[in-house]
Design a protein around this nucleic acid. Sequence first.
DNA 1: CCGTTGATATCATTATTTATGATATGAACT
DNA 2: AGTTCATATCATAAATAATGATATCAACGG
Lengths: 298, 298
Amino acid sequence: MDSSDLRIFRIVAREGSITQAAARLGFVQSNVTARIKRLESELGTTLFFRHNRGMKLTSTGKILLSYADRIVGLLEEATQALSATLEPIGPLMIGSSQTIASIHLPKLFTSFYKQYPGVILSVTTGDTQTLIKKVLDYDLDGAFISHLCVHPDLQSIPCFNDELVIVAAEGNFDIEEITTRPILVLDMNCIYKEIMEQWMRDKTQTRPHFIVMGTVEAIIGGVEAGLGISLLPKIIIKKNENSRKMHIFALDSLNYNLTTEFIIRRDSFVSSTLSAFLDYIKCVLEIDNSPAIPKNQG
Amino acid sequence: MDSSDLRIFRIVAREGSITQAAARLGFVQSNVTARIKRLESELGTTLFFRHNRGMKLTSTGKILLSYADRIVGLLEEATQALSATLEPIGPLMIGSSQTIASIHLPKLFTSFYKQYPGVILSVTTGDTQTLIKKVLDYDLDGAFISHLCVHPDLQSIPCFNDELVIVAAEGNFDIEEITTRPILVLDMNCIYKEIMEQWMRDKTQTRPHFIVMGTVEAIIGGVEAGLGISLLPKIIIKKNENSRKMHIFALDSLNYNLTTEFIIRRDSFVSSTLSAFLDYIKCVLEIDNSPAIPKNQG
DNA sequence: CCGTTGATATCATTATTTATGATATGAACT
DNA sequence: AGTTCATATCATAAATAATGATATCAACGG
């Protein structure tokens, strides 16, 4: 039994006539007759009494009519409910730390854009405080930040979990030695600087010397050239491991992993583009967190 | 949007994979892909995020899934509910007065039998009291009687409404004269005798003389031969008006019309054959009572 | 008695829709 | 680079639905 059968059945039941129903449906009479007969034989019951003035529902038919009404009603309601949700079109302003922008966003944005080609994406990089302010000021729809954010007007979705490693120039294998080197950071507010500061405090008595490099690429270049050491997501190094001349030290502290979360305003109107983006990142995260490919149901 | 689309959609949503869903449905993967894509384009929304491990519902898709579950559930429930109602097969014992049996039952039984060829119909004629007793004794499933029946164990459905007329031999046009004639009746308990008795009491002072003829055809023959007068449903006379040599007098009393009702036991199990028959006569009555062929809805 | 009307049923044919099979594409993992 | 495991595409085959012509059947009217 199919909903198209029920649609036809309903009209026949209401019109009390196959001919009338066919006219109403824009079908030929024989087709409607055949559909009704097929429905009856499929269900193994008589749905109509045939008489020379048309068709009249049997009690079985009346039962089916009540189901048919509910089913067709739900189908229409569903169509209504879904056609209301329009495909997202328009700008979507996302903020991000530089590291996240270079590690995670290219892939994420590529697949998101493939799904929603009408969305005009733009990424603004900056330090955590700047990004939070822009989100609060409605300059950004949302931002990826690596601090835990507890602002009352913001809500956050944990997104990425990156292993952080200390990197040093090739040949610098002595962890004690490298702690004396300057530390290359993006800016004076970045989370990597804070973590390094904390770590150095625990490890050594000396106050670390920071050099602000401005971009991730500049930091990597500086490390390779032996200017200093730095703290970076492991994945950034692994990506082009072969072409890089760096040594990796595992960071043996509690801040070994860095969680990045996506923040949005708690109150504001959620645009269709942002809504789609939120959906999308939630979906991607579920996939990435899923333990393995579930093999089941033979 | 069709229920078959929803059935496929549901499996894909649950399996999280078109390939798996196709396997489960016994379809080829490309078909499922096409159906889902068509559904999406028909609704104008994206129902799934595609990723390299399969498909994941969007929030729009989740909404549709909840509708799909309800719709498919109702379809299954309907199938269940209807397949339980078996086609009636077996004997159906009906009682009837002779007049009703000859006027109404041939047509009624013909069309009923056409609808339910598995039902083995049988008619028992008799007077009202005998029929009532047989129904109460479970010897008959039901009976057409022309008395108002108020027995506590019986319920009744009004069925036919027949105009009664007094008939006399051709040439007997004087109403005063014919009241002196004997009255031909089926039996001493029949309703026609009672009505005539009442009418004669109002009309004349003389006590009427009744002759029991046993069958309707015998009465008609007796009237034609000038043996006496009788009271019969007008339709019986009209049926073969041309071939009969009788005169019709309208009965000018309150019993002008005779109502026939179908009685059944109130309590007993209603067999599928009886249930179908009840349904059927209710339907036929609605048709006959309907004022005209309803013309509507352009 | 016979033809007309107004309904459903049947059936061969056509049109449309659905399913298939082969192949392309694409991302992740090795 | 190659393998694996997904979805997407496309020409074609198979199944299903719609059509048009015709049959049937009961009621009605002349």
